[in-house]
Write a protein that binds this DNA or RNA. Sequence first.
DNA 1: CGCGGCTTTGAGATACTTCAAGAGAGGTGG
DNA 2: CCACCTCTCTTGAAGTATCTCAAAGCCGCG
Lengths: 232, 232
Amino acid sequence: MSIACDTCVVRNRAICSVLDTDELVALNRIGRTRTISAGQTLMWEGEDSALVANVLDGVLKLSTGTEDGREQIVGIVYPADFIGRPFGARAQQTVTALTEARVCVFARGDFDAFAREHPALEHKLLQRTLTELDRARHWMLLLGRKSAMEKMASFLLEMSERLVQNGCTPDAGPLDRFTLPFGRQQIADILGLTIETVSRLLTKLKNDGVIDLPSRREVAILQRDILHHRAG
Amino acid sequence: MSIACDTCVVRNRAICSVLDTDELVALNRIGRTRTISAGQTLMWEGEDSALVANVLDGVLKLSTGTEDGREQIVGIVYPADFIGRPFGARAQQTVTALTEARVCVFARGDFDAFAREHPALEHKLLQRTLTELDRARHWMLLLGRKSAMEKMASFLLEMSERLVQNGCTPDAGPLDRFTLPFGRQQIADILGLTIETVSRLLTKLKNDGVIDLPSRREVAILQRDILHHRAG
DNA sequence: CGCGGCTTTGAGATACTTCAAGAGAGGTGG
DNA sequence: CCACCTCTCTTGAAGTATCTCAAAGCCGCG
């Protein structure tokens, strides 16, 4: 039987990788592919959790905000990552596409039921969730205890590691040049800073010869060791 | 057969609650109870993850730090909570007892193997991990975007909800008076502030009549609505 | 009573924000 | 192809929340 998953670009990296063909057929039946344009929101904080999804392509952000409009980005989602809140009634974060994105969506109830019948899938999801929890807690150190420059340096280093093309190329280590899927305000919302501070820090790093900024969203790391040093 | 779990105080709230008697006997065989005195550390960040545990009694903190000694508390662990990093080689946080604590510990390898054979246990663990992840991400908003006073007010409100005696008393809602398991420096390490700022904020809240501080570690909330308002 | 650790309070320093313009980039239409 | 517009980003100057440094107060405990 031929199904969409056969040609799925994240087939071997998403949580689905633990499923055999029959199981994949069953999962495929309850899901569908959806395209989201940049800036569009897939689910809202506080809304009831109706959907979960696998990311096929693109980058999305998870964010929370205060009543008066301050925003904090709490997670960045890449291809093969899972989004949504299974086994829970409410979505706790807003999910918004930063680039055009393709996701494989499931009604939460359907997915929950399927997962409960497939322990291997739940196990994979558990592993991912544990990793995400470690990552979130590590980010709390950055938010709570690092200076603005340390935050920025840490951020650039993390991006150089995470934005590696997840394509066919064998793992080539961190990139020395990459295009951010964020504008300055979004970097500020990730680091808990203001847009002006972000701009000043980037200019300073550029003037110090640590990085180069070929265009608005491109970054080239010229002196990784120094950047590392500034990350605290 | 009589086992320790029969009289376990968290029997119905810890992840073990999904196990039947036979399973509990098996799990009991690979675990043992251990007492930790206040201030003692159970596992260290970066060390390999040898243990996992259920908390029976007491309060512990999860923390990470920078090389130069700055610390951020990233989680607080109460009775019936699970600690450690199953299915992963390294502990990502340091776990330290804040009060004298009793925990039910397992060698990580033993626990991993047991969990893989008991999907219901993994499911329960997944649910907990998802909840913890939501909590951690919510805390990121506090760390990144809230003012010192907003942080303190949010903290006091959260404590009044989480420190509810988990004993036999039916759920009685948030406490208006409680004893913190933290000193001032630890509150600072939770909120990403300095000890002096923490002290000043508490005295201000007291002078404003919003709270009372009967002793060093006791807090009484006098005007919950105002505290809520100051939490942002 | 006196000692040591924790906490409070004060005064001054500063990192980051806020407010306010100006410059640059990218897109659109003439 | 250039002029224009808008949106984002940069830069500057001033303000302020929080930190740092320093000293004194409190409290439990031997």
